[in-house]
């Protein structure tokens, strides 16, 4: 089974040289730490920077330099800063090659819910709806089950949707899965996790074909 860092490391393997990438808050943010050596990947934060760098050294924080999670950041050499409309033009106009974000639920047709729990949590969708409606390549990074142990990979989402039929790939603590017209296709198992365990934790349709390899980190 993977921890959050493991999920980030596995998704980092999906990165390709020259890609512009938007990382959501939470597990996705960790991916920036595991970019394979030799790859040039540029990270966007949707509040308005392309070429986001690491957190600043203590004492060098700048209130005017934050990411979309409101964390203090730095800019990489070659970074560019722009307004919010330009930022979402990059997203909507499909100038960004990969979006990675978290989710509360994903359905086996690619629907995603990650912004609202009616009556409980209403913080808003931020940029998530623009990102999922626009990106061609969306990976969801999340735990396979919620805190109560219930599956987050469902036949149908129960929470208000963020986007429809948009998720392409999911990396969880248990598995890597592709979203196909017939459901979640199991691509890889996390180290030490059996197909049966993944099946038991997946409420949506799961497609298992032949031997499913264990992921290599």
């Amino acid at each position: 089974m993977l921890d959050k860092t493991g999920i980030a490391k596995r998704i980092a393997q999906e990165l390709q040289d020259g890609w512009y990438v938007n990382l959501g808050i939470g597990i996705p943010t960790l991916i920036a730490n595991y970019v394979p050596e030799g790859l040039n990947v540029v990270f966007q934060s949707e509040n308005g920077i392309m070429g986001m760098g690491p957190f600043p050294y203590e004492g060098e924080e700048d209130a005017d330099m934050i990411n979309a999670g409101k964390q203090t950041i730095t800019a990489m050499p070659g970074a560019a800063i722009f307004d919010s409309a330009t930022s979402f033009a990059m997203i909507r106009g499909q100038h960004i090659q990969l979006t990675v974000l978290g989710a509360m639920e994903v359905a086996d047709n690619g629907d995603i819910a990650n912004w609202k729990i009616p009556g409980k949590m209403v913080k808003g969708m931020g940029g998530a709806m623009d990102l999922v409606a626009s990106a061609e390549n969306i990976i969801v990074a999340m735990m396979h089950t919620n805190r109560k142990g219930a599956s987050k990979l469902l036949r149908q989402c129960t929470l208000p949707l963020t986007g429809v039929q948009c998720v392409k790939k999911i990396v969880t603590n248990l598995a890597v899965l592709d979203v196909t017209p017939n459901g979640f296709k199991l691509i890889e198992r996390a180290p030490g996790v059996s197909v049966e365990e993944i099946q038991a934790a997946t409420e949506g349709r799961l497609i298992v074909e032949g031997e499913v390899p264990e992921m290599v980190l």
């Binding site: 690491p54 957190f55 600043p56 050294y57 203590e58 004492g59 060098e60 924080e61 209130a63 005017d64 934050i66 999670g69 409101k70 964390q71 203090t72 950041i73």
Partner: peptide
């Protein structure tokens, strides 16, 4: 200019 999430890395 209050900072909402002060995040830093160690030297």
């Amino acid at each position: 200019k209050r900072i909402e999430q002060r995040t830093v890395r160690s030297r």
